[in-house]
Design a protein around this nucleic acid. Structure first.
Lengths: 350, 350
DNA sequence: GCGCGCTACTAGAGCGCGCTAGTCAAGCTA
DNA sequence: TAGCTTGACTAGCGCGCTCTAGTAGCGCGC
């Protein structure tokens, strides 16, 4: 079966099992033109049902699979959406999961590129563009606003979960204000007054949540209790913040609102290890309702974003930009809502 | 900085911002041939340092980025590895993270394809092949052994974390036996005798772990205490198994060894909610040491696999197959080792 | 003068496909 | 009969790149 492998100039061809059959092979097999095979595979009119049948049969027999790279190259539209996400971020993973079905519905193929510690977002984005993504969906990108705007000038871009002033890209996100507001209301309602916020620095969504926290505190007459602890959107960020609070002279707040779930989990981690009872001594609230927040062992009170709808809007926005039905710059926002679980409760007297 | 955006004939091509510059544009800009630009971008000898400089400068000015699709098409080797993983599986995410740097070192580009509920592995694999992956890395694939073998006949395939009889693919995995053995030894050492195993059915690695559990129990003279509860490799699987145990007439075991971390977390979840103290009433041990296992709030005793080395071996194996230095069918195994954390402890008297 | 070996560069044939602009026969109209 | 349409199929260019096989120009030795 496998052709002899003469160990040739070992760089040219990579271990040729059987050379991948091409459209021409299928056409030759049937004695028809390549174009006809192409028609059939693109499900275009212009071939009789019997011919279609024969083409598919021959293709299956030869093991022919259409070659995307060639297809992309040949056709103007690639119908490929590039998705950037952070592998570590469970909320991003949720988004990716939700993006697939919508993309498929609209006839788009997806190429994923993960930002991981060893590979920054710039590289990941280059890879997506290089693979001929027609449009990019960026899940909570952390690169500069300017870079995103430049990118938006080159091709349609949809940013998920981050606010930007740029009008060269579409933005799909949740209203952070009502969500954060609900968090503070909930905590105040439980009787908390010392409510701290571990923020996410300049990370996507973080500035808005921080502002919303401030506003909500003020409107509850708790302006003097505002306490913002610098953090970020990782477990480590939460851990560091928690250690900081434990070591601080100010003592622990009775409740902490974290800028995202991972950060909240970091807090949970350090507090639990330090023997701080959750929620008796400290209530903790996260943000995102990523799938691990719901795990009963974590059971995190958090703010749920409507992930399936976010995904649908994002893919739809990309599609609209690609079809040219409107200029980029749309801002789509969804409601988000508090999900009360086990990590928040009334404060105990001190 | 940004090149002028002529915003031309908005109908033909999808939303043509500025038509993507090509190599020819760069070449024309400098009055040289395309081939020369190609040389420079491929970092091949044959261009003077000054020319290189000028080429890069012009490319940057025009915003030129090499087009992968065309590059893949033109060159025999695509230097693209396709990676299949399950978005939900944190261990897979760890693997993906680890694969990136090694792949880059060997000059491979990566295309990711996620298996998600709405999109099975077959589709995900087709996508990878269609995007011209030269070789595939499959993280814990659940498709049939036969399908994998067929795939291996078409192109180099490396399977991670699953044992197969097929010799048409390479296999990179950890020894499950010593790991599982260590788990049982650890639990027996703590004084446990009623050690149950929630298995992963036929999922990757599960049969081996199940067998290893059985053997270890027997060798401790606990053959009559062997208790295998059907499960799978998801949180839901663990939750169902835990509910089953709680409802069972046999009562709870004093320790449960789960087939992977997610399953263990599912157990943890249901037990905690049911008021069962971990580890006082039931010790729980997982498998994989995925990054969430280490989160202090979960703090799961588990079996660590050497993810960076697994990744390195896998990419290396793919590379070897591609270079044709050996036939497929290699089986590479690494040691794994127990990581004791907070979910295991001595049993309490009943 | 010649050939020789270099370096720096170029021409042009593909890679596997999509797509436009056809051809060609068969069936209608009239 | 010509003139038109329609369905089934094909020729062949071009997508943006890589790569082989060159050429042009230079310094060198004899």
């Amino acid at each position: 079966m496998t052709p002899p492998n003469p160990r040739q100039g070992s760089d040219r061809t990579p271990a040729p099992r059987s050379r991948k059959p091409t459209m021409a092979d299928v056409a030759a097999e049937l004695g028809v033109s390549r174009a006809l095979v192409s028609l059939v595979f693109r499900d275009q009119p212009g071939a009789s049902p019997e011919t279609r049948e024969r083409v598919f049969e021959a293709a299956a027999r030869l093991g022919y699979k259409p070659d995307m790279a060639a297809r992309l190259l040949a056709r103007g539209r690639s119908k490929v959406l590039g998705v950037l996400f952070t592998a570590r971020n469970p909320h991003h993973v949720d988004l990716v999961e939700a993006i697939y079905p919508t993309a498929e519905e609209l006839g788009y193929d997806l190429v994923l590129s993960a930002a991981v510690p060893s590979r920054d977002e710039h590289k990941a984005i280059e890879a997506l563009v290089g693979h001929r993504s027609e449009a990019l969906l960026l899940c909570g990108p952390t690169i500069s606003e300017e870079d995103i705007a430049d990118l938006g000038a080159r091709l349609p871009v949809v940013v998920l979960g981050r606010h930007l002033k740029s009008t060269s890209v579409d933005i799909v996100t949740s209203y952070d204000r009502p969500g954060a507001r609900e968090v503070v209301d909930h905590l105040v309602g439980l009787g908390h007054r010392d409510i701290a916020h571990v923020d996410g620095g300049s990370r996507p969504g973080a500035p808005e949540r921080r502002r919303a926290y401030r506003d909500a505190m003020r409107s509850h007459g708790l302006a003097d209790r505002i306490r913002i602890i610098p953090g970020n959107h990782t477990e480590e960020g939460g851990q560091d913040a928690a250690r900081g609070m434990l070591a601080s002279d100010d003592g622990l707040p009775t409740a902490v609102f974290a800028s995202n779930d991972q950060c909240a989990i970091g807090l949970l981690d350090v507090f639990t290890r330090a023997g701080v009872k959750i929620p008796e001594q400290v209530s903790i609230v996260g943000y995102d309702d990523s799938h691990i927040a719901g795990l009963s062992h974590i059971d995190l009170t958090t703010v749920r974003q409507d992930v399936p709808r976010l995904a649908r809007l994002a893919v739809g926005a990309a599609d609209e930009q690609l079809r040219g039905v409107r200029e980029p710059g749309a801002v789509l926002k969804l409601e988000s809502k508090l999900v009360v679980r086990g990590t928040s409760g009334p404060p105990t007297q001190r």
